[in-house]
């Protein structure tokens, strides 16, 4: 009987909702097909397979190479993001509130914005060399624009009545800024931070790849350079795939962490 109190024997597979089965069916099928295809190849093939990728992941993790590279890359992203946060927040607040600052800076911002972070790379390497400073500057550059633009728009779109209400309550200007304008713009600041962190992470991989390329393994380190080494020297496709997956998972985790922070910090407001 369907509504019998006895424990159902079909717990397990059947308790997984149908939608989840639908969602994982195709990826699972592709993985299986990939594995089968790889198993049909000669034994000394360089072609990656799911089993080899998994083995590679375990090997790189245990050897400490992968965690070390990851820490290095994340460290650079955080540092670059913080630089961008300081600049983007202060300039965005100024541009969003003060007309002449905006009028004066907008042309410069708008002319640099379409220039992709990677296009800055040659200049960065020439001026800063192939080490951390070059990678950092690329990351900061990539993270700066989403932050600046979102902070600026968030601040300029603060409901003027909230500011007027504070004035009629005798709230001094600085306090109005910290207690009205800043919290009112908080959703945009957090959105900008999330997008900035996304571009920063994308940029660091590319920057490390490119900086690594120039230095021939050089001093850059990080997961991007690790990929470069697998590609240019050891030709380890399984290693490259491990890195790809790790990069993707980290991006996902960063995004989720920021969304979680948004939910907590923007409490009391409907999701926008």
């Amino acid at each position: 009987m369907a509504n019998s109190l006895a424990p159902s024997p079909s717990i397990g597979l059947r308790s997984v909702p149908l939608t989840i089965w639908r969602a994982i069916a195709l990826p699972l099928l592709l993985l299986v097909a990939w594995q089968l295809w790889a198993m049909g190849l000669p034994a000394d093939t360089r072609a990656p397979s799911p089993a080899k990728v998994l083995a590679g992941f375990v090997r790189l993790t245990l050897a400490g190479d992968l965690p070390l590279a990851l820490i290095q890359s994340i460290g650079r992203v955080v540092a670059g993001f913080l630089i961008a946060l300081v600049l983007g927040l202060s300039l965005g607040l100024a541009m969003g509130r003060i007309r002449w600052v905006r009028d004066g800076l907008e042309p410069i911002v708008e002319s640099f914005r379409p220039i992709a972070p990677m296009a800055i790379l040659p200049i960065a390497i020439l001026f800063l060399g192939t080490g951390t400073p070059a990678a950092l500057s690329i990351v900061a550059y990539a993270a700066f624009f989403p932050l600046l633009l979102n902070v600026m728009h968030g601040v300029s779109r603060v409901d003027p009545k909230l500011v007027l209400a504070a004035r009629t309550m005798g709230v001094p200007p600085l306090r109005t800024f910290t207690h009205v304008i800043l919290p009112a713009a908080m959703p945009s600041v957090l959105l900008g931070s999330r997008l900035a962190m996304g571009s920063a992470w994308t940029a660091i991989i590319a920057a490390e790849l490119a900086v690594g390329a120039k230095a021939g393994g050089g001093t850059s380190g990080g997961i991007g350079q690790m990929m470069f080494v697998f590609y240019a020297y050891s030709i380890d496709l399984n290693g490259i795939v491990v890195c790809m997956i790790v990069v993707g998972v980290v991006a996902l985790l960063i995004d989720r962490a920021f969304r979680g922070a948004e939910r907590i910090l923007v409490r009391g407001r409907e999701a926008t």
Partner: peptide
């Protein structure tokens, strides 16, 4: 109303007392 959406009812009512001249 111009209420502050990130503040609770009490915090909104006390906003002027907390931050302003009153």
């Amino acid at each position: 109303y111009a209420l502050y959406p990130w503040l609770t009812v009490s915090q909104n009512i006390g906003f002027g007392l907390e931050n302003g001249t009153p």
